[in-house]
C-alpha cells in the first residue's frame, strides 16, 4: 500500500476525494479501486467487522449451505480449492470469509435469477482457520463454517 495514498485517505475523507483527484488527473488512475468494489467490506480484519461491513448482522447457521470439493487439509495455503453450494431459496450472494487471514473477506459472488447459487474458486490461506460461507437469501443472511488445516502457509514472505 502506498504511503501517499494512505495519507490522502486519512486527510481527505476517503474514496470520494480520491475519485475526484483521480478524475482531475492529480494522481495516477493506477491507485483507483475498480468501480463497484466495496473497499469497506474487504478492509475488515475480523469476522465481526466483516459481518458488520456487509450488513449481515448475526447470520443464522444453515444446513442448506454446503462446501464441496473443499479439502479438510490443504497442503499448500496458496491454492485452497473452495466450492460452495446454497439450497436456500432466492439466494442472492455467497461470500467466502477466512477467520485468520489478514483480510477476512476473500470473495463475494452475486447471483442474478437463473444462475445456480453454486461457486468454485481457489483462495489463499495464511494458516489453519475456520472458513465461512455466508449466504444472502431473501434479504437474510445464513452461514456454514468449516475448518481447513493448512500445512504450508499461503502468504509467503
Amino acid at each position: 500500500m502506498n504511503a501517499d495514498r494512505r495519507q490522502v485517505l486519512k486527510t481527505g475523507g476517503g474514496a470520494t476525494l480520491l475519485a475526484l483527484l483521480a478524475a482531475a488527473g492529480w494522481i495516477p488512475s493506477a491507485w483507483a479501486d475498480a468501480p463497484g468494489w466495496s473497499k469497506a467490506d474487504f478492509d475488515a480484519h475480523t469476522m465481526d467487522d466483516a459481518l458488520k461491513a456487509l450488513g449481515a448482522g448475526k447470520p443464522a447457521a444453515s444446513g442448506d449451505i454446503a462446501f464441496f470439493s473443499t479439502p479438510d487439509i490443504a497442503e499448500n495455503g496458496g491454492v485452497v480449492p473452495i466450492g460452495v453450494n446454497s439450497k436456500l431459496p432466492n439466494t442472492e450472494s455467497i461470500a467466502i470469509l477466512v477467520d485468520k487471514n489478514p483480510f477476512t473477506l476473500a470473495a463475494l459472488f452475486d447471483f442474478p435469477a437463473g444462475t445456480e447459487p453454486t461457486i468454485s474458486t481457489r483462495i489463499k490461506m495464511r494458516e489453519t482457520s475456520n472458513v465461512h460461507a455466508l449466504v444472502k437469501a431473501g434479504g437474510k443472511y445464513f452461514v456454514t463454517s468449516k475448518e481447513i488445516k493448512v500445512t504450508l502457509g499461503g502468504c509467503g514472505g
Binding site: 463497484g36 468494489w37 466495496s38 467490506d41 474487504f42 496458496g78 491454492v79 485452497v80 477466512v98 487471514n101 483480510f103 473477506l105 476473500a106 470473495a107 463475494l108 459472488f109 452475486d110 447471483f111 442474478p112 437463473g114 444462475t115 474458486t121 481457489r122 483462495i123 489463499k124 490461506m125 499461503g154
Partner: peptide
C-alpha cells in the same frame, strides 16, 4: 449471469 468482488486472498 454473475458478478464478483475479490480481495487479495483469491489465489494467483
Amino acid at each position: 449471469v454473475l458478478t464478483a468482488q475479490w480481495g487479495t486472498a483469491v489465489s494467483k
